[in-house]
Amino acid sequence: MATSRGFFVRLVRYAESRKNLTGSVCGLAGVGITLTGAAGSLWPLVVAGLYAAGALIAPPERPDTPHFPGAGEQLEALRADFATLRTYLAEVELPPATRERLDSFESLVEALLEPGWVSDPDHLHVLARAVRQDVPEAVDTFVRTRWWSRFNPGTEAPESHLERQLAALHEEATAIAGALRDAEAIRQEIHTRYVEERGN
């Protein structure tokens, strides 16, 4: 059953191929020659020969170029993942200082993920890694460690590690914001120069 289906798929694929279409056009030309009487009794060979010649000269089949999501599509997917992350983070119990640091980070990422700002692939990668990997892992590790630390008091508070991780992630996001600010400043300066020089 699978073999016959595979044969049918290959047959349909060949029927739609450039080789078959070009060969068919040339074969129709052979039929036209036959109708004029020029082919005589050899008309089947003429039609078959022209079909074969057309199939041979047809350009090769090219597979479709794969589609990869552009910056806009990546940003939309990242925004959706960030919304999912925020729902998760809202349910996690955190100390007030840690929650404040996390809220600050969330606000910065939310601003960066607004449409029209981040389009650089490297910046998108940094934000995607933070949203999809770094923050969930840091918070989950904190929750697990905090639970076990109740049985082993006197060790380093797990929130100190979480705060250090959030500080490093905040620094990465701040660097992206700084790059965007610098780019906009340069753009504004160039436009100012253009407007001023246009009048001269």
Rank of each mutant, 00 (worst) to 15 (best):
P69I: 00
T98V: 05
H170A: 10
A128L: 02
I33W: 15
D120Y: 05
P59T: 01
L75D: 02
T65S: 08
W148F: 14
L78D: 05
S160M: 09
L113K: 07
G72V: 07
S149A: 05
S4K: 10
E91W: 14
R62H: 13
P44Q: 09
L124M: 07
G116S: 02
N152C: 04
P96C: 06
N20Y: 13
G154R: 06
E73T: 13
D103M: 12
G6H: 09
L56A: 15
R132K: 11
F142Y: 15
V139G: 09
L56P: 01
W43L: 06
G23A: 03
A80Y: 12
L89P: 10
V135M: 14
S160A: 08
A185R: 11
L89I: 10
V25F: 15
K19F: 14
L113H: 02
A167R: 13
V143R: 10
A173D: 08
L85E: 04
A177F: 02
L35D: 06
S160N: 13
D120Q: 13
W43N: 06
G54T: 00
G199N: 13
V139T: 08
Q133P: 13
P59R: 05
A168H: 10
E196I: 09
R193E: 12
F105D: 07
E197V: 06
R62F: 08
E189S: 13
D182V: 15
H161E: 09
N152F: 15
G30D: 02
I176Q: 00
T65W: 08
V92R: 14
L94V: 10
I190L: 14
P153H: 09
I190D: 15
A53P: 02
N20S: 11
A58F: 12
R164L: 12
V131H: 03
L42F: 15
L50H: 05
L89N: 11
P59E: 08
E156F: 05
Y14T: 07
W148P: 00
E196P: 01
V47Y: 03
R79E: 05
L75V: 06
G116T: 02
E171V: 00
E114Q: 14
A58N: 02
E156I: 08
A39H: 06
P96A: 15
F105K: 08
E106W: 02
V46P: 12
R132P: 14
